[in-house]
Simulated assay, not measured.
Amino acid sequence: MQIVFMNRLSKQSGDSAGEFAQLWIGEEEGNWRLGWREFGENQESADSLWYEGTSWNEMLGVYRHELAVKMGEGYRPLIDGVFHEEESLAGRNQEQLKLQYYSEQHANESVYEELCAWRRRKAASERKAPYLLASNRLLRLLGTFLPKTEEELLQIPGVGETKAAQYGLEILAITSAAERSHSFPLSWVSAEIDEESFTSWLYKQKEIKYKKQLERLRLRRVLLEGIADGCGMEELKERSASSRREILEAVEELEKDGYIVDSLIDRELASMSGAEQEAVWNAYQELGDTLLKPVLHKVYGEEITSAGSLDLYYERLRLIRLRFRRENEGTPGLAPHPQEQA
């Protein structure tokens, strides 16, 4: 096996000289191996094989995720650049990240819960998803820094002029009622943060990010293998331990990336009449393919919304939309119009 990359990392351990580890990547006849070796005080080494396989992308995903875990535990590279093309930790959003970190360490839970309750009520009244009004991260920032004026509110990352105009008065009614011991602007936050703890937290955020990316990569691999084997949605669900919705979203990404998923579409639409598929296709031509609800109502009538679960209807609409978009983009190997299949 040829070693193509190696780096040495150290970890300070109290007053001791610290611990050391090696991170390595090897390749042999197209097979990739990724490993980690720790050296203890007695110089004995402990090896961990993180990945072995033929997928460079999956190996890279494992590399980033596992390395972020180790960096979060306190390991630091002797040679910088272990994340290669990833963004620098000293980027332009450093100040915002420190505000986020501080808000997680000094959360005012009672104000945060009050803001969450406000968001639920507001989302219900406006018939919107709660996250469209404000993310959990934003509510925690608001609950920690407690702005009392619109000027202070606009200093919170994630609050722009539009959001302040729409919800500012209601938010301030909650945050300004709580006592606070700090001031605005929030430039004092940086001096209150332990840099080493903050850096470990940053790598924890990377760990979460890379874990999600790795899960998507592995799901794609399982789906491609399953589709090649002639599996349907339910079989893919069992193989991947994912929901049908997650599988469908991944299938849409595969189609966008140029993979052929026609065998899955054929299998799932086999019980759907040609006339019904024709009606859906014509609705997309008339209404466009951005929103599914108008197409649903066009084909099945508005009374369909009171007919119970609509998951199967929406699933079929999305599968037909894959072919509709492909044909309208002029991609080679177009699926035939439903009428031509009848």
Rank of each mutant, 00 (worst) to 15 (best):
I3Y: 13
N7T: 15
S13P: 00
S13N: 15
A21G: 14
L23Y: 12
W24V: 07
W32K: 02
Q43G: 05
E44D: 10
G61N: 03
V62N: 04
V69L: 14
G72Y: 11
P77R: 06
E86N: 05
E87L: 12
E87R: 13
S88F: 12
G91R: 09
E95K: 07
L97K: 12
E114P: 00
A124H: 13
E126T: 04
P130H: 03
Y131C: 01
A134C: 10
N136Y: 12
R140Q: 13
L141I: 02
L146V: 06
K148G: 11
T149V: 03
I156C: 03
G158H: 03
Q166G: 00
Y167Q: 13
L169T: 11
I171C: 04
S181G: 11
H182R: 05
W188M: 11
V189M: 10
D194T: 03
D194V: 06
T199A: 12
W201N: 06
W201I: 04
L202P: 01
K209H: 15
K209R: 15
L217C: 07
L217W: 05
I227Y: 01
K237I: 01
S243N: 05
E249P: 00
E252N: 06
I260Q: 07
S263A: 07
S263P: 01
E276F: 02
Q277P: 04
V280K: 00
V280N: 00
L291N: 07
L292F: 11
P294Q: 05
E302T: 06
E303W: 10
T305D: 13
R318Y: 09
L322M: 15
R326T: 02
P336T: 05
Q341N: 10
A342C: 04
